[in-house]
Write a protein that binds this DNA or RNA. Structure first.
Length: 744
DNA sequence: TTGCGATCCATTTTT
DNA sequence: TGGATCGCAA
């Protein structure tokens, strides 16, 4: 990637790298060589006689941790012991600590479960559709969020419910409602904790929690574990949450912390990270100092101007004013207006192709960034069509796909007989076995002491042969995960191919990769843990590029640390930034959206294209007190082009924020084009409109009594009975009137 | 009880 | 878009 092995550090970087005190936080702006600084610090330590195995490198994703380690190794290849240098995520580090010290933490035959399993557990406990006294649905999803947030931020249940279930509102009524329903949440969480315990499950949060709490309680264990290393180097410090700080606090005394991060790139608030914590670093960590990096090596000044501007629009003081080492290039970031997502995707892929054909770039000089995973779908489709090789970053990859989980469920049973979720999944795969039968079987086998016992019970049940054969064949292969995948595949292939039909051809290819991955683990238990912790091993890209030369499609969250010469940011549209949900959640979330966009912009080195769809063809809107403001607005009929439907466009306004790229209304700088009103389009079938004879093109109307379902399905089937379109002749409706609107 | 077809519905972000 | 859920027939 970045090939230069001898690295020139600037003064600021050198000052950080040669830090002599105990703990240090390096506050580093985007592109200022954060990773470089960590790498150089490691090299500096090694060069000054520190044994590599005494250095621990923590990063936010496994990929970036490994990359850092690789680069250090490349720089210090002649030093002895450098191959022992370790790079981990917080989770995989803690997993290792638990695995290597089962007695200290009292963890022996566990199975690590992921989000989908957690959902399964909560479904089992709470029922799928529990409604509380106020008829609010409490889904398994929500229960997990509440539980997880409260653990990661170490906050009270009430606070967690308020944030996750009540959109961060803090009115007296909300508190009263929470008080009323809190018992239910508490009850469910208690049952979940018990459920895990009975089945030897450990979830994501447990992995950190077990170690963090354990070390706090036991001074001796703390000293023992902490003494395994002298230096901890941490990347992406801004994403560290209170639980992780608690974990680190056990190491203050024994290790020296070297942390690097950028508060303006903190985008993991939903997981409990608070960017303000960075500002308190010296108060939280004893004997610590803060240094800054301000010179940007990545981008042109034009790109930084836009990024700086974005932060400066905030009421918060980020205090970032990035200066480009490279200076100006004369090429301004471009804003491209598009009518719909397909035009957007086509334009991006055309630009990618011409960047290669006309400007001599490679595929991997191009990167497409999106706030959401599905925002990349249409670009992906266009890549397929135009035969552009690409790799998708972020989201669920191989390990979350159904067919892989199906096969892995067999392995999980063998490694932990109490793994009820795996049992259910495995049994229900087979023909003639549904939920009820599966549950009956589970009841019989779950308390078995050994696989032999299990197999005996199964053989007495008159089931089809493959069910027990598969398990039998892998029982003795516990220490050979790769082999057991192979064996399980042999007996399950027939059934799986029946289930997945014509999808099977491409699905089955994944098992080769899976076997490959499993080779590096030494037991099924370890393999399962590994695959839960790193669930997005190589997404199979349908068109592979030569020599890894492909276009990167990525969510902004997965783009941390990435960069490319040409970046395309999709859907910087009304309600793209901030999203309706963020608006609803209030200023903290809105600021996080700003930082997301900032991360996206600052990935670009040379060229930045920002796509905006002003005429969004589906209506997204906050389900909140603002609903009325959106439905009631000035509306004009544009044209009748959709078989018996009229297309209306209405302008949406809300005080405080404009919806497009945080653009203030009075701005007239070089990026003035970022300002637009927010237009929305809505198709309404003529048959649904009462006095349709009044409707004429280019006339202004307003709608009243537009039912919710019409708004949600505006484009397709609309079935409402009471749309009332009347010619508008009065004043505009003001916000005060929203309260009178009947939303029920 | 299972399994299939139809319909509804929601849709951030990740370890 | 597809995933989850519902309703119905075998």
């Amino acid at each position: 990637m970045k090939g230069n092995i001898s690295i020139q550090l600037n003064e600021e970087q050198l000052d950080a790298v040669e830090f002599k005190g105990k703990h240090l936080l390096v506050l580093a702006g985007a592109g200022t060589g954060k990773t470089q600084t960590i790498i150089s610090r490691a090299k500096y330590l090694i060069d000054h006689g520190v044994t590599p195995s005494r250095i621990l490198i923590l990063s936010f994703t496994r990929k970036s941790a490994q990359e850092i380690v690789e680069r250090i190794k490349a720089m210090s290849f002649n030093k002895s012991g450098v191959s022992n240098l370790v790079g981990r995520t917080f989770h995989s580090w803690c997993m290792d600590i638990i695995k290597n010290n089962p007695d200290i933490f009292q963890q022996h035959n566990y199975t690590v479960i992921d989000r989908e399993d957690q959902e399964g557990a909560f479904k089992f406990i709470s029922g799928k559709n529990y409604k509380d006294d106020d008829n609010r649905r409490i889904t398994p999803q929500l229960l997990i969020d509440v539980y997880s947030y409260s653990i990661n931020t170490k906050c009270s249940l009430t606070e967690s419910i308020r944030v996750k279930a009540y959109d961060n509102q803090n009115s007296k009524e909300v508190y009263e409602t929470i008080e009323k329903n809190k018992d239910f949440y508490a009850d469910m969480i208690k049952k979940y904790l018990l459920y895990k315990k009975e089945r030897n499950y450990i979830d994501y949060d447990d992995i950190l929690n077990i170690v963090a709490k354990g070390l706090k309680k036991n001074k001796e264990a703390q000293k023992f574990i902490a003494s395994k290393q002298d230096y901890i180097l941490i990347d992406e410090m801004q994403d560290t949450n209170p639980l992780q700080y608690e974990l680190l606090s056990s190491f203050y005394e024994y290790c020296s912390l070297f942390c690097v991060g950028d508060d303006a790139q903190s985008i993991y608030g939903f997981r409990g990270a608070d960017f303000k914590t960075m500002h308190n670093f010296v108060n939280i960590v004893p004997d610590s100092e803060v240094k800054k990096l301000t010179l940007n090596y990545r981008s042109t000044q034009e790109i930084l101007n836009l990024s700086n501007w974005l932060l400066n629009q905030s009421p918060l003081k980020y205090g970032k004013d990035l200066k480009a080492y490279r200076g100006v290039s004369g090429f301004l970031p471009q804003i491209i207006n598009v009518d719909n997502d397909w035009i957007e995707a086509n334009d991006i892929t055309d630009k990618i192709l011409s960047s290669i054909a006309e400007k001599g770039f490679n595929y991997n000089d191009n990167m497409v960034l999106s706030r959401t995973l599905w925002g990349l779908r249409k670009v992906e489709a266009c890549c397929l069509e135009k035969k552009i090789p690409y790799t998708v970053f972020g989201g669920s990859g191989l390990m979350k796909s159904k067919h892989v989980r199906d096969l892995v469920s067999a392995l999980r049973i063998v490694s932990n007989i109490q793994d009820e979720l795996a049992w259910m999944r495995y049994l229900m795969l087979w023909k003639g076995v549904g939920e009820v039968t599966a549950a009956r079987i589970v009841e019989k086998v779950i308390f078995s002491q050994s696989m032999n016992e299990v197999l005996d019970i199964l053989s007495g049940l008159n089931l089809q042969l493959e069910i027990s054969t598969t398990l039998k064949n892998i029982t003795d292969l516990q220490s050979y995960p790769s082999k057991s995948i192979h064996e399980a595949y042999k007996t399950m292939e027939k059934r799986l191919s029946e289930i997945y039909k014509d999808e099977w051809e491409w699905r089955k290819q994944d098992f080769d990769i899976l076997q490959e991955v499993a080779l590096s683990t030494s037991s099924i238990t370890e393999f399962v843990a590994e695959y839960v912790l790193d669930p997005k091993l190589e997404t199979t890209n349908k068109i592979a590029g030569k020599d890894d030369d492909d276009v990167t499609l990525t969510t902004i969250h997965s783009a941390k640390g990435l960069e490319a010469k040409i970046c395309y940011v999709v859907n910087v549209s009304p309600y793209g930034y901030p999203t309706p949900r963020a608006i609803l959640n209030g200023s903290d979330s809105i600021e996080e959206e700003r930082r997301c966009l900032y991360v996206a912009f600052t990935r670009a080195k040379d060229e930045l294209y920002i796509y905006r769809n002003i005429y969004s063809n589906h209506v997204e809107q906050p389900q909140s007190k603002y609903t009325g403001a959106i439905v009631i607005g000035s509306i004009f009929v544009e044209k009748d082009n959709h078989e018996n439907q009229i297309l209306i466009t209405y302008i949406q306004e809300k005080e405080g924020y404009d919806y497009i790229g945080f653009r203030p209304f009075n701005y007239d700088g070089p990026y003035g084009d970022l300002l637009e009103f927010s237009f929305r389009k809505l198709y309404i079938p003529l048959s649904e409109i009462n006095n349709k004879e009044n409707i004429q093109q280019d006339d202004y109307y307003f709608l009243n009594n537009v039912p919710e379902n019409l708004i949600q399905n505006s484009y397709k089937n609309m079935s409402s009975k009471d749309i009332n379109a009347v010619k508008y002749s009065g004043d505009q409706i003001k916000n005060d009137d929203i309260d009178e609107f009947d939303f029920n």
